[in-house]
Amino acid sequence: MAEGAEVVRVAVVDDHPVFRLGMVGLLGSLPGFEVVGQAASALEALALLGSGQEPSADVVLMDLHLGEGSGIEVTRDLVRRHPGLRVLVVTMQEDDESVAAAVRAGARGYLVKGATPEEVERAVRAVANGEVILGPSVAARAMATLLTGRTAARVSFPELTDREREVLDLVARGFDNATISRRLVLSPKTVRNHVSNVLAKIGAPDRAAAMLRAREQGLGGD
């Protein structure tokens, strides 16, 4: 926070200029907010916020799709470098996989782009205060998931990271890299790297062998 007036310093990362500029204008018009920067790509976001001892912003509004880059990966990188930085995802996507991926990456909030100005303001203030917040539609589905009583299954392939296990699960379902990229909100290059790492770690000579091994371990189911 800025000294004295409890000003929330905000940065906006979105590759759509109309939305980005509109969000910058909205936040700049609200009392208690200071827009300290904006970025249109993953590289610009990391240049703006990723260097230095302290980030220039308290809260970052982050889109998931940044052209060739992924807002998930940028979020993970920024939070790793600056654990106190709060990321609020603002995106068109509200499917469970995107929400889960954002939260695992370190996001503290998740809104869809149809949110009202009042909802945006509340969400930014809440995240700045250390709360975790989900938009109404996202929260409703999250609560429904909790109420189903789903429990965690035994972890397969403990040598893999969580992200690699997600990729392997989708490989076991028969999805190609392009589909995995869309579902996990990752760049195609990142997916290719994950698949290569998975094959090496589990000792599978090719994708078909990895699919078979994954299914034997219970991955790739509904």
Rank of each mutant, 00 (worst) to 15 (best):
M1I: 04
E3Q: 03
G4N: 06
A5W: 06
R9A: 01
V12F: 06
V13I: 14
V13H: 08
D14Y: 09
D15Q: 14
H16K: 01
V18C: 03
F19S: 01
F19R: 02
R20E: 06
G22E: 00
M23D: 03
M23F: 08
M23T: 14
L26W: 02
L26I: 02
S29Y: 02
L30A: 04
P31V: 11
G32V: 08
G32P: 08
V36E: 02
Q38G: 05
S41W: 11
E44H: 06
E44Y: 08
L46P: 11
A47K: 03
A47S: 07
L48A: 04
L48V: 06
L49R: 00
G50A: 05
S51W: 06
G52P: 04
G52I: 00
Q53P: 05
E54Y: 01
P55A: 00
S56T: 11
A57W: 02
L61G: 05
M62T: 11
M62G: 07
M62L: 13
D63C: 11
L64N: 05
H65T: 07
G67Q: 08
E68I: 13
E68G: 12
G69C: 11
G71N: 13
V74A: 03
V74N: 03
V74R: 00
T75R: 01
T75V: 10
T75M: 06
R76F: 12
R76W: 12
V79A: 03
V79N: 03
R81I: 09
H82D: 01
G84R: 02
L85G: 02
L88E: 07
V89D: 09
V90P: 13
T91A: 04
Q93W: 15
D96T: 15
E97C: 05
A100R: 02
A101K: 04
V103F: 11
R104N: 13
R104K: 09
G106H: 02
A107E: 09
A107C: 09
G109F: 10
Y110C: 00
L111K: 03
V112L: 07
G114Y: 03
A115D: 06
T116I: 03
E118I: 10
E118T: 10
E121D: 14
A128H: 00
N129I: 01
V132N: 01
V132Q: 03
V132M: 03
G135Y: 09
A139H: 13
R141Q: 12
R141M: 13
R141S: 13
A142Y: 09
M143G: 10
A144K: 15
L146A: 15
L147Y: 09
G149C: 06
G149E: 06
T151K: 06
A153L: 13
A153F: 08
A153S: 12
R154A: 14
R165L: 01
E166D: 10
E166A: 04
L170D: 04
T179S: 07
I180R: 00
S181E: 00
R183A: 06
V185D: 10
P188T: 00
P188Y: 01
R192C: 13
S196C: 07
N197A: 08
N197K: 08
L199H: 10
L199T: 10
A200Q: 15
A200T: 15
A204E: 10
P205Q: 09
D206H: 14
A209P: 07
A209E: 11
M211G: 09
A214R: 01
L219D: 09
G220P: 15
